[in-house]
Design a protein around this nucleic acid. Structure first.
Length: 582
RNA sequence: CGGGGUGUGGCGCAGCCCGGUAGCGCACCUGCUUUGGGAGCAGGGAGUCGGAGGUUCAAAUCCUCUCACCCCGACCA
């Protein structure tokens, strides 16, 4: 390679940027985004669920953060940086020191004081605000930060998707009344829509459960992907969409009940829904599953149709319980008098029974008889057993939409954002108040709003890649252009490549120059792996005709432009799309 | 936490069943040739075989314990 290329030292060259690409897939994970980001030298794993960002990965992260900042600022939020290390006292005030459980990373200092590494910052901001003696005149206030969060995941998985340490943008709004809080919620919802559009994700906002954060309502922003950990129900006809945890089911009309008498049948060794179906030659929707739960220490019986699944969040809400789990065999025997696998609601007194609405609509059903190897046929709700009816199951594909009645679809999604209407949950618990117009202290109406910044990076790769590598959307790509001199031994080619690199850089087009002394095939393959949107190919062949070649990473399409027109080409490409979407 | 799997130069793996003192591909270094889709030849450097203990004349290999990582599940923002 000619020595003269070393004379000009521009930073954005392969020789000055550490991009350790791997020829082979890492052995320790199957998910595309993890595999590709490791191979392309964006990230490295330190230990389970904890990652380092290498120069290229950091550039992508910065791009995402920049878009987030612009839209948060535009929505009137102000950036702050809150501590990651938080004293236990604050968490005890809201009761979450206990509630949060093992997910919270806890530590103790040398004085034996307790701390946690923040998984979220409601307590810290609320404390910050309450100390300031604010009046209604200075409201609303919305603060945000981009920070590393910690969560002691039971099982970190999917690379950056579910880590124990990750980067989040979180925002908190403080309003004088619910109306204002609702406006902030809407502003944030709109900002999130713009953010996810700009970073180039195909996403959907869905109604969601509020979980441990609490509050009155929330929406999740879901990136559609097969590997998504969440199931989303969305209407095939109207705009309704919700997390299955949250999606309401419609109570079916009750038909006539069967006149056939309750009949005992022997079902030796047959207890699962599938086995019972096969044995009695019936279908799952003729069976009722009886599940015994323990809710805040007391046993509860839940009934759902054989082809449905209990939704524990809905059930817990119905019971008004804070803690709910499936009962063990001992409790099952105590409650039903029979073995696990043959439970049923018939002759169960003294225990609360709650049936799904779909069970109420059945003319009669097959249920366990609370003794070994025995079931009942023709059990009728209201005649053979009593139960309170409610929506306690997960929606399934084909269920009618709660808004319009048309069938629901099921998709999988990755949660990249979540907005919560908190109301006064934290402000009341922590006595965070402001003076209203009459001079009285009133608790703030709050909202909180999170975006998984590092998760966006993974989700983006998940949605945008092919067999050869990553295909970054222009808005978050580490570079816009990747200049590839094909013959590194040719002085003419290298001179021209350096020229183009300089020209583009001066035109504010972020450009990476592959100045390695490597064979063309190596450079092309690495370029495809890195996924920079435009490859600018400089070769002897093209130079003879005074042109250079541009390959679009996404489509593989190649065009040639005159040397002098390269910058103009990019300015035109960028002008057309601004930074918004692709 | 339950089930399954894997730990051997930087990366990917073989060797383990049947003990005999570590090998392959890629990467790296040197030289020559080569040069539009992961080059060829020659030479070279690099491994506590995850860790501890045990059995044995001898352990990557057999036994016990332990740690880490991955997958499935349970759990959960």
């Amino acid at each position: 390679m000619c020595k003269s290329w070393h004379v000009i030292r521009l930073r954005m060259r392969t020789s000055n940027l550490w991009i350790p690409t791997l020829r082979e897939d890492p052995s320790d994970n199957e998910i595309a985004s993890y595999r590709l980001m490791i191979r392309a030298g964006f990230i490295r794993k330190l230990t389970s669920g904890i990652y380092s960002y290498l120069p290229l990965g950091l550039r992508v992260l910065f791009k995402i953060q920049q878009i987030v900042r612009e839209e948060m600022d535009r929505a009137g939020a102000q950036e702050v940086l809150l501590p990651a290390l938080q004293p236990s006292e604050l968490w005890e005030e809201t009761g979450r020191w206990q509630q949060y459980g093992k997910e919270l990373v806890r530590l103790t200092d040398r004085h034996d004081r307790h701390f946690c590494l923040g998984p979220t910052h409601e307590e810290v901001v609320t404390d910050l605000i309450r100390k300031e003696a604010l009046s209604y005149r200075s409201l609303p206030v919305t603060l945000y930060q981009i920070q590393t969060k910690f969560r002691d995941e039971i099982r970190p998985r999917f690379g950056l998707m579910r880590g124990r340490e990750f980067i989040m943008k979180d925002a908190y709004s403080f309003d004088a009344d619910m109306q204002g809080a609702q406006q902030r919620y809407k502003d944030m919802y709109d900002a999130y829509t713009r953010i996810f559009t700009r970073v180039g994700l195909r996403f959907r906002a869905v109604e969601a459960d509020t979980g441990l954060i609490g509050g009155t309502s929330s929406h999740e922003f879901m990136v559609l992907a097969d590997i998504g950990e969440e199931a989303i129900a969305s209407c095939t006809a109207c705009a309704y969409a919700a997390n299955v945890e949250q999606a309401c089911t419609v109570k079916p009309a009750e038909g006539p009940k069967t006149d056939l008498p309750l009949t005992k049948v022997m079902t030796p060794g047959v207890s699962s829904v599938d086995d019972v179906c096969a044995f009695l030659n019936c279908s799952p929707h003729e069976i009722v599953k009886t599940l015994i739960f323990v809710a805040d220490g007391r046993p509860v019986v839940a009934l759902v149709r054989g082809d449905h699944q209990v939704n524990e969040i809905k059930l817990r809400r119905q019971l008004g319980a804070s803690e709910l789990h499936l009962a063990g065999n001992a409790v099952i025997h105590e409650v039903t008098g029979g073995p696990s696998g043959f439970s049923g609601p018939v002759h169960l007194a003294e225990v609360e029974i709650i049936a799904d609405d779909a069970v109420a609509a059945m003319p009669g059903c097959i249920v366990g008889a609370n003794m070994g190897d025995t079931h009942y046929r023709h059990a009728v709700l209201g005649r053979d057993f009593m139960a309170r009816c409610a929506d306690i199951r997960n929606a399934v594909a084909g269920d009618p939409c709660p808004e319009c009645g048309k069938p629901l679809d099921m998709d999988r999604g990755i949660e990249v954002g979540h907005v919560f209407m908190l109301g006064t949950k934290y402000s009341q618990a922590m006595r965070a108040t402001f003076a209203d117009a009459a001079g009285n202290d009133r608790p703030f109406c709050m909202g909180c709003y999170g975006i998984g910044v590092s998760r966006i990076m993974a989700a983006s790769v998940e949605q945008n890649h092919d067999d050869a590598g990553v295909v970054w959307p222009v808005s978050i790509a580490p570079f816009m252009a990747h200049v590839i001199p094909v013959q590194d031994q040719s002085e003419a080619v290298m001179t021209e490549a350096v020229n183009i690199h300089q020209m583009l850089s001066q035109g504010k087009i972020e450009t990476l120059l592959d100045d390695r002394s490597a064979r063309a095939g190596v450079k092309f393959n690495d370029a495809d792996l890195l996924g920079i949107p435009y490859q600018v190919i400089v070769s002897e062949k093209n130079l003879k005709q005074g042109v250079i070649e541009i390959k679009m990473r996404k489509t593989g399409e190649r065009i040639t432009v005159k040397k002098a027109d390269v910058t103009a080409f990019f300015l035109k490409e960028m002008g057309g799309t601004d930074t918004v979407g692709a």
